[in-house]
């Protein structure tokens, strides 16, 4: 196995163009597991750890966070919880402290496992993946990124350079079911983000379909419900029945399977409960913020 260690981003792109089968590695929390258990024997590893810029982030004029692909989860938790509250909540549930010190959103996206904890908040935030190759750079909307189980929209010569995530303009939540209280892979997970300026609500479902996905029907329902009842303007109480219906529609959007981690029926049930609860948490936060501002 070749071990390629480019010193710069440009060099990395050149190496990737030469070795399209090379597997990029940063924290190694995912790639090394596959290697150690002999599930995957790539002919080359492309080590991105020398490329400093991947560990940094910038805030654009429009308040979008350009998050380097290798920024570890622990940094997101410590430094970005106000701008990226949903992602920070998801990051807190990733593995153990040691894993959070090494693992990064770029790795989650590269691996594209439906169980990745970063995916639902990225979907709910409306993130964009900055992919690059020697051919140039393209911005892939997160909705178009996940293609299948552990398959994403990257071309063989492309690397993920950064993830563009709009700073939160409203409350965001993330909840995940696992069968222990820490360091657990998702049985299923759910993220919701309120976008009050756009009067929009976005969602993300994890570990309950071949890919992470949004609950489009649930989003349409709650958008319409908030518009029709004037709740965005009145900042009134969200009826429990509305939240319940939202939960049911989220559950309906999932396509879970039975496996050792949980039954399909449980996953649907849990998604309905988590969606109902997290919607109420975000809405109540939104109301409280509105009142505080008023």
């Amino acid at each position: 196995m070749e071990f390629l260690r480019p010193a710069t981003w440009e060099e990395a792109l050149a190496v990737k163009a030469q070795h399209p089968s090379a597997v990029p590695i940063a924290g190694g929390t995912d790639v090394m597991v596959d290697l150690n258990f002999d599930r995957h024997r790539p002919d080359a590893l492309l080590d991105l750890n020398r490329i400093h810029e991947l560990h940094t982030w910038q805030i654009a004029d429009d308040d979008t966070v350009r998050l380097g692909a290798s920024v570890p989860y622990s940094k997101i938790i410590d430094a970005l919880p106000d701008r990226l509250p949903g992602l920070a909540l998801g990051a807190r549930t990733v593995g153990s402290p040691q894993i959070r010190n090494r693992g990064s959103v770029g790795g989650n996206l590269g691996g594209a496992s439906p169980a990745g904890d970063a995916h639902p908040p990225l979907l709910a935030s409306g993130a964009t993946v900055e992919a690059a190759s020697v051919r140039g750079t393209r911005l892939i909307p997160i909705d178009d990124f996940y293609l299948g189980v552990k398959r994403n929209a990257l071309e063989p010569d492309e690397l993920i350079r950064a993830i563009h995530i709009p700073s939160a303009t409203g409350p965001q939540q993330f909840a995940k079911v696992g069968t222990r209280n820490a360091m657990v892979i998702a049985v299923c997970s759910f993220a919701v983000a309120l976008h009050p300026r756009a009067r929009d609500v976005r969602t993300g479902i994890g570990s309950a379909a071949p890919t992470p996905r949004r609950a489009s029907e649930a989003e349409a329902f709650i958008r319409a419900e908030l518009d029709d009842t004037g709740l965005w303007t009145s900042a009134g109480e969200l009826p429990l029945s509305t939240a319940k219906r939202f939960g049911e529609l989220v559950a309906r959007a999932a396509a879970p399977i039975d496996d050792v981690r949980g039954s399909a029926a449980y996953r649907r049930h849990a998604l309905a409960v988590m969606a109902r609860r997290t919607l109420l948490w975000t809405w109540n936060d939104h109301r409280a913020t509105g009142r505080a501002a008023a």
């Binding site: 549930t93 909840a175 696992g178 820490a182």
Partner: peptide, 16 residues
Amino acid sequence: VRELPGGLSNTTHGEG
């Protein structure tokens, strides 16, 4: 949430 079922997975704030 560390003291609640689900822990840091943030599944309840006391509900249920």
